[in-house]
Design a protein around this nucleic acid. Sequence first.
RNA 1: GGCGACGUAGCCAAGUGGUUAAGGCGGGGGUCUGCAAAACCUCUAUCGGCGGUUCGAAUCCGCCCGUCGCCUCCA
Length: 505
Amino acid sequence: MKVFNTLSGQKEEFVPARQSALRHAGVPQSDEVTMYVCGINPYADAHIGHAMSYIFFDVVRRYLEFRGYKVKHVQNITDIEDNIIAHANKQGVSVPELTQKYVERYDEDMKDLNVLPAHVYPRAMGEIDKMIEIVQGLVDKGFAYAVGGNVYFRVRNVPDYGKLSGRSLEQMMAGARIEPGEDKEHPMDFLLWKESKPDEPSWDSPWGKGRPGWHIECSAMSIRYLGEQIDIHGGGQDVLFPHHENEIAQSESFTGKKPFVKYWLHNGLLKMHETDEAKMSRSLGNLITIREALEKYSADAIRIFILSSYYRSPLTYSEETLEASERGAERLRQTASRMSEGSQSEAQIDTEDYHNRFIAAMDDDFGTAQALAALFDLAREINRAGEAGMDASKACNILAELAGVLGLTLKEAEASDLAEEVAKGLWNDTVAEARRLKLEWVVQKVTEAQDLEHVRGYLNLLTGVRDAARKEKRFDLADFIRARLAEAGIALEDTPQGTVWKRKR
RNA sequence: GGCGACGUAGCCAAGUGGUUAAGGCGGGGGUCUGCAAAACCUCUAUCGGCGGUUCGAAUCCGCCCGUCGCCUCCA
């Protein structure tokens, strides 16, 4: 398989570094892939842009596992930095209180998006010792220097500084947007350790009380949990520079080993499409949190939206496109849930062909768009076989398996999402309507309703009544029921096997 | 100013030198259905503009027009 490596600027054959430092006995070394993905700063809810990155790297992980690799996935949590301190102060809570709350909410978001959890989620606060060790090591080797309580990295000692982002120190200087360096030797030198103010969280260090700089934690965690050289390091294109550039500089300077990361993967960024309302309100209204998105769209729809385009391209959030993704998700769900009813002869579907298409697409730098296209084509063929009364359950299993590699569950929404009061109200309305139409036999069914509990019972009762009405050609009542259910978000479908209801999203 | 992207049907979006330009959504026409829905069948683009290279370009080169990202915390 091939992956686009930001470091080389081109697609490269993916061969995991077998000499990766391994911490777990019993894991076949040749199969292991070490992957580090830049995580969150938990001071607010994660937004849909974060979802784009985490869903993509979730797919990377799932696909590598599908291909037989043992992936060790580490993702940091930056629970101490300036923004967090500022937000905690503003809200009048402690830093740990703030970060714990948002870490928990982030976990829920990822679970709801069907993103597999990383194997280790190191937190910056828990890795201070390793960071100090690295900073000290860099000072000892002449790659860093202390000025007062601050420690800076000396970029001029790294000849290949800028190799990831494709720029030279000269070019960066030419940008002329550099702040006059306070006490730095060179304007591009960056902070490894920051002296803290009296009322800020701080740790003891050889340079006095302070806290880590912005880039050092990822080096420390990556080295501690995955080894000095790893296979994949991922993140959004916005952290390519300076964050990842600096990680390389400090990690390679510290360990003396190159490359720090064999494959750098960067996803494009999500642009927030400004609605007319957002333009009006001007505040910070152009952020859509994962939670907000999940209220309107299923996780499958959000994943399809993101995976429909190449991960390195920018993507624009749009309600219209999300709606389209939801419809597409619904179609796949419909197919996946297709029962092999009766099943006469087995359908002749060349699942191998779809399987191969899927792999060929994914092998080419995670071509999720084409992989999805293969799934839609397979779905069509399954449905076609179903129409012909053939058993396509084998193909269905392949569909579900491949969809699973993309993290799609293809699960129908639950009836329990409907409030019970709503279901009762629907029943009462139906009885009233039946009275009006002088269909007393329906009214009689009230007795049965007493025995029924919960939403599912009401729904079954309603569809039962409707079926009876249809048999009597009382389409007025039948259509009344269908219309009211539709208003409540329940769609009815009359199939040859009988009427089924579905919770619409 | 520096570095780098992108512009493909009504919308989203693959494709990066050569048979009929993926797929999704939408729309038109059908099949099925009491009517619907779902599903299936079918129709729906010559690839921003101009010029060049080539037997042949959406795909390579140049220019123009238009969008955008990064260079500063940010997935």
